[in-house]
């Protein structure tokens, strides 16, 4: 299964689809295919229905939260200092993240192929959090997309029954997001330290000291 081939195949069959191969540096080398949200449904439908692909099984769907993160990389540049050319380390700061990502693992049981890792990204983490639901293509994604909606807050357009799955109705926030603050239900810990110790001290102070 060649990811480059699949990419060019989708590009010719789904006009306007923007694809990107995300390399995986680990020994497994499981590279993935990033597809833009507008054409994701058409691309996924192609992967399922094309006779030479037949990805008939979606084994897994999961979410990832990528908060905005500043990454500084050192770049060696040549600069002229006092008329002499010198190698200078320059720190370049770039921002990454700031979106929610959904990952699907697709298999072809018919052709004994897979997994194909398909990714989609929202535009940001607050307002534009809509992605197309792939449940109409693979029923197995239904509960997993509900779980992603519940825990990460991704809105799946076209999902037949988008309700919370693990948390209760009326719960606010999405607990798997990196910036989720859990409720302050402090409890005694025999070896309180660091964060727990700070919280414990705050509670003791609020209760009037011990």
């Amino acid at each position: 299964m060649n990811l480059e081939e699949i990419k060019s195949e989708i590009e010719t069959n789904v006009p306007g689809c923007r694809l990107e191969i995300i390399p995986n540096g680990s020994p497994s080398g499981q590279h993935s295919l990033l597809v833009d949200a507008d054409h994701a449904f058409a691309a996924a439908a192609y992967l399922r229905d094309a006779p030479n692909r037949q990805f008939d099984y979606c084994s897994n769907a999961t979410g990832i939260d990528w908060p905005i993160k500043e990454v500084s990389t050192k770049v060696k540049t040549k600069k002229i200092v006092d008329g002499v050319e010198k190698d200078v380390d320059e720190v370049v700061k770039t921002q990454t993240g700031g979106y929610l990502e959904v990952v699907y693992h697709l298999f072809s049981v018919e052709l004994r192929q897979g997994p194909l890792v398909l990714r989609m990204r929202t535009e940001d983490r607050a307002e534009r959090i809509h992605l197309p639901s792939l449940t109409p293509l693979w029923r197995s994604a239904e509960y997993q997309e509900r779980e992603i909606f519940d825990l990460y807050g991704v809105m799946f357009d076209g999902h037949p029954d988008l309700r919370r799955l693990l948390m209760w109705e009326g719960f606010e926030d999405h607990p798997m997001r990196r910036d989720y603050v859990d409720p302050d239900d402090y409890e005694y810990e025999p070896t309180a330290h660091d964060e727990v110790l700070k919280r414990a001290q705050a509670h003791v102070a609020a209760e009037g000291g011990r």
Partner: peptide, 17 residues
Amino acid sequence: QNSEVWKAPLVNISIAG
């Protein structure tokens, strides 16, 4: 929590740990 049933156990925070 139901405070009739359960209370957070007391611990002396100043020497905890």
